[in-house]
């Protein structure tokens, strides 16, 4: 994007200025254009960053949902290597009642197992 701006700027420097076409205020017409494009690109960048953070947060949420145990397809896990237990109480409070707790298993992604 930076290159685009520079290219546009060079192109406009090469062109002859137009006398009769007056811009508002003290700015040259090409300057107005560059300002408009710069503002637009900044807005796009902000939108991009916001979107990226927002989406990442959403993915994390989805992971935690999976961890709690709503998974429909059971992963193949060998006995004894099922990962580690969750620590925070909120994570393993049972869905059925407030006063019961479950043993939550957090699967670690990269465990290679065989079916046997």
């Amino acid at each position: 994007m930076q290159a685009l701006q520079v290219a546009a700027l060079c192109l406009l420097m090469a062109l002859e200025p137009v006398n009769c076409q007056q811009a508002r205020g003290n700015l040259q017409p090409w300057m107005q254009g560059v300002i408009a494009v710069a503002v637009f690109l900044v807005l796009v960048a902000i939108a991009f960053v916001v979107n990226k953070f927002w989406c990442q947060e959403k993915e994390e949420n989805m992971e935690s949902v999976v961890t709690i145990g709503d998974k429909k397809e059971e992963d193949v896990v060998s006995n004894g290597t099922e990962g580690r237990y969750s620590i925070t109480a909120a994570d393993f409070r049972s869905k059925e009642t407030q006063h019961a707790y479950e043993n939550i298993i957090e699967y670690e992604g990269k465990v290679i197992t065989t079916l046997m």
Partner: peptide, 16 residues
Amino acid sequence: AIAMMAVALFLWGYYA
């Protein structure tokens, strides 16, 4: 699409 909007905005600014 972003490139096209940038071009369009430049022209809007130029002839504003």
